[in-house]
Design a protein around this nucleic acid. Structure first.
Length: 827
RNA sequence: GCCGGGGUGGUGAAAUCGGUAUACACAGGGGACUUAAAAUCCCCCGGGCGCAAUCCCAUGCGGGUUCGAGUCCCGCCCCCGGCACCA
């Protein structure tokens, strides 16, 4: 009699049993010693979640399951798979939630984390709970602050003034996403712009390397593309337009030799530059503005400065601007052109000034039309110049130059080089590469984040907190609402921010801004394997063994910021000698998104899936299997409630194939057809799981089980047991149970290797070949595999329907694709 | 506007080195078992004509290349995601 009294598939019971067993036996957790000595380390990383009050959502479970399947697959292939998870728990999201509910984040977050741990355990992920991180734990953010100090020491952290969105009603700084049509998303008040001193990391110093390395890492193509677009390399030139000392009558500083530098990617159009525009914030505005224009220009600057950043930067808005009264010399035509200011020119790109070529730039064209500035065409399109009637500015960089003096007739491509060279000879130009990437502003005028570890001293200036004084602990503050001062709520906590200067010992104050959440997540993967170490951010030996990350799976919503910031941090740590690699993730794959019944899930639509009841009803294995089955993992898919019954039925049939006989399976003679299908299935599942094509791998397993159980037959042990192994990464609990009921001890993930297949056994010996006449299928013939053209043709011609179509026609050609198709081309 | 990814049965989706389009599932229909329901099992299931068929039509639309196109090329339309005055 069996020791397993219960023969019905009871997911809740076996899932509890195996989750307990994994915890008890340390199946998925490494000891420090094991981390130090693992022979085939494989770091399987997934994006750690933000522990919201709502709990894990289906998107999280989808992502984690897909990553977990990969990790379990690698483990069965013999790797030592390290699969940690943690909590990205700082940030504005919890702060706002806390403000709304009145629960302090220091209570809210631990409760949320506890709930997440319960849910993560329940979905059966292979998580190493010995090596988890919580970014809000001082033992973690001590090292986030340490990281800041390293960047500071290296000169990669600096303070500069930058605009922020400010809601005068909520009295708070807003992120760009919180500004909707110029209004605060929460209260609808028009948003203002404030300029404050903030901390920046000089990521732009690394723009070139961050771009070049993209060629050498194995990432999803879409992610690579998003990064390179974000970095946005532009090749062009900086051209110099000398300011006319007495342009509009009375210049402010005559004869100073002032020069306006502009960046352009189209130096070939410089003869068409009929005016120059400065950004409102450009430092030379006062210098070029002449007396009568001063007041109007000043007003314009003030308005531009106060406008919220979102409206200000919106494309397609009507162009505004103001003439400064000043002029400068176009270095190509050597004629004076007027200098304007306009907010469509951005101070933080290029030089903050442009040469306007309205004939060949749509924005300049709109501006010139509005203000009656000259529009000169200097490039003729190939062929007909007159066919540009529908186009306002001709922006294509193809054609030949006109109205360009001695360059007339030169193709654009050549002119670009020649004009820069010639102007450079006169000191009026130089080649230049510009990046769209901006420095990373890490200051947040908020409460719920790690304090930036610097101290401001009247005598010594900015003094970094000594490393031995870390962490700078975020104090518990009951009232952390923002206030009208425009600085962090920490600026109200005097006994926290008043400290002696570490350098001179005099009175000094702490920095009260906290750092960006993206800084917490920019290095968390370094911390996981070193979580045992209290005295260093990451241990050299352990890091050397486990990093860089072997496989990273996550959402493409982080294609740019998180992935770019972490690349920057690793590159900088590499340059400082802390790491011996400069790219954090060898392989990155972006998964798709789950939608439901064709629509994005959202609370307002009421179509959000709550995972807990589904797991309770069907079990984690069924849920996992369905999620992986509903569409291609890297593309996402449509969640349909009824669809879960397919995977559920599959697991039932798998269970029924083994359990009712207590593992005493039939000993009939082997069935060659089933054996062949088994080997084909192993091949297919192995290839597809390795490639994250989970949906088709599952389909192959289902098809195989259908064959093995066809006409009511019960599969032999050697037919079903390999299927249990193939399915194990997807459905770990039932796999463990079936593995045990088949008479094995221990975990299937340690005891069972991933099955191999025998190509000879997978090979079909007879194949059905399609027979076409002029490309249309007219029949099929069954032939021995590997038959040649003549053999197949002979069989095909004997096929009555084929013969009918060939009747009376002359066969001009026969196309043969071995074991697939034969095509008679007739005349 | 720019950059990605897509448009295939009633539905989710297979098939992408050009080679039998619709695997695997869901829903639906029919049947078995059952007092009944649930569960389970079996059969059918792109459209058309039809007794039937590898007869015709069908992979968003229009052209093209090819013996052969869901797949490649040209020109469009639509959906999803990201970026958006970056000179």
């Amino acid at each position: 009699m069996s020791k397993h009294a219960d023969r019905a598939y009871d997911p809740a019971a076996i899932e509890r049993k195996w989750q307990d067993a994994w915890d008890r036996n340390g199946t998925n957790a490494f000891t420090l010693d094991q981390l130090r000595t693992a022979r085939r380390p494989f770091f399987n990383l997934m994006m750690f979640p933000y522990p919201s009050a709502e709990g894990l959502h289906v998107g999280n479970i989808y992502a984690f399951t897909g990553a977990d399947v990969h990790g379990r697959f690698k483990r069965m292939q013999g790797h030592d798979v390290f699969e940690p998870i943690g909590f990205d728990a700082f940030g504005i999201h919890s702060e706002n939630f806390a403000l709304k509910t009145g629960i302090h984040p220091m209570e809210l977050i631990p409760a949320n984390v506890a709930n997440f741990r319960r849910q993560l355990r329940r979905i059966g992920g292979m998580f190493d709970w010995n090596h988890t991180v919580d970014t809000t734990d001082p033992r973690y953010y001590k090292w986030t602050q340490w990281l800041f100090l390293q960047l500071f020491k290296r000169g990669l952290a600096e303070q500069k003034e930058a605009p922020v969105n400010w809601c005068p009603s909520d009295m708070t700084v807003l992120a760009n996403e919180q500004v909707i049509a110029g209004m605060c998303e929460r209260c609808g008040t028009p948003v203002e712009q404030r300029r404050i001193r903030q901390w920046f990391f000089r990521i732009t110093d690394y723009a070139g390397r961050l771009l070049e390395n993209l060629d050498h890492i194995d990432w999803s193509a879409s992610t690579l593309k998003a990064q390179s677009n974000w970095i946005g390399r532009s090749e062009g030139a900086e051209l110099r337009f000398p300011v006319v000392p007495d342009g509009g009558g009375k210049a402010a500083h005559p004869g100073t030799g002032a020069v306006i530098s502009v960046f352009t990617t189209r130096p070939d159009t410089v003869f068409g530059a009929s005016y120059v525009v400065l950004a409102p914030e450009h430092p030379m505005v006062d210098q070029v503005t002449s007396g009568p224009f001063r007041e109007a220009v000043g007003d314009y600057r003030t308005r531009a400065r106060e406008m919220d950043l979102v409206t200000r930067q919106k494309a397609g808005k009507e162009k505004t601007g103001m003439f400064t009264g000043g002029y400068c010399i176009n270095p190509a035509t050597r004629k004076p052109v007027p200098v304007w200011i306009a907010d469509y020119v951005l101070m933080d790109y290029g030089t903050g000034a442009i040469m306007a070529v309205p004939g060949h730039d749509q924005r300049d064209y709109e501006f010139a039309s509005r203000f009656d500035l000259p529009i000169v065409r200097v490039v003729a399109a190939p062929g007909e110049a007159g066919d540009t009637s529908g186009v306002e500015a001709y922006e294509e960089p193809v054609g030949t130059l006109v109205n360009s003096g001695s360059y007339n007739g030169t193709p654009v491509r050549e002119a670009k080089l020649a004009i820069v060279d010639d102007l450079a000879a006169r000191g009026k130009a130089e080649r230049k590469v510009n990046y769209r990437l901006h420095d990373w502003c890490i200051s947040r005028q908020r409460y719920w984040g790690p304090p930036i570890p610097v101290i401001h001293c009247d005598h010594c200036g900015v003094v970094p907190v000594p490393e031995e004084d870390l962490p700078v602990v975020l104090p518990r503050v009951e009232d952390f609402r923002p206030d009208p001062s425009g600085v962090s709520p920490l600026a109200r906590v005097r006994d926290w921010y008043e400290v002696p200067c570490p350098s001179c010992g005099g009175d000094a104050v702490r920095e009260t801004d906290v750092s960006d959440t993206f800084l917490d997540s920019a290095w968390y993967f370094l911390r996981y394997p070193s979580a045992d170490f209290g005295d260093r951010a990451f241990d050299e030996a352990v890091t050397g063994r486990w990093l860089p990350v072997d496989a990273y799976i996550g959402g493409n919503e982080h294609a740019v910021l998180h992935l770019l910031y972490s690349r920057f941090v690793v590159m900088a740590l590499h340059d400082m000698g802390h790491l011996d690699f400069e790219e954090p993730y060898k392989r990155f794959r972006a998964h798709g998104l789950i939608i439901r019944d064709g629509a994005k899930m959202s609370k307002s639509k009421g179509n959000v899936i709550i995972p807990d009841p589904i797991i309770e009803r069907y079990g984690a294995d069924t849920f996992r299997l369905y999620l992986m089955f509903l569409g291609p993992f890297m593309e996402g898919g449509d969640y349909q409630d009824k669809g879960i019954s397919g995977p559920r039925g599959f697991l039932h049939r798998l269970w029924e194939s083994i359990v009712p006989r207590d593992g005493a399976l039939p000993t009939d003679p082997p069935d060659r057809e089933v054996e062949r299908r088994l080997h084909q299935t192993i091949r297919q599942v192995t290839e597809q799981v390795a490639d994250l094509r989970y949906n088709t791998a599952i389909a192959a397993m289902m098809a195989y089980l259908n064959v093995a159980r066809a006409r009511g037959r019960t599969p032999r042990r050697d037919e079903i047991e390999p299927l249990v192994r193939l399915a194990a990464p997807f459905v770990p609990h039932i796999a463990e149970e079936l593995w045990q009921r088949l008479g094995n001890d221990g975990s299937i993930f340690d005891g069972a290797r991933w099955p191999g297949y025998d190509p000879a056994k997978a090979a079909e010996n007879r194949v059905r070949v399609a027979v076409q006449v002029n490309g249309r299928v007219r029949g099929t013939v069954l032939t021995p595999a590997g038959s040649d053209r003549e053999e197949v043709a002979a069989l095909a011609q004997a096929e009555s329907n084929v013969a009918r179509h060939l009747d009376g026609a002359e066969v001009r050609r026969i196309i043969h694709v071995q074991d697939r198709l034969l095509n008679f081309v007739v005349g």
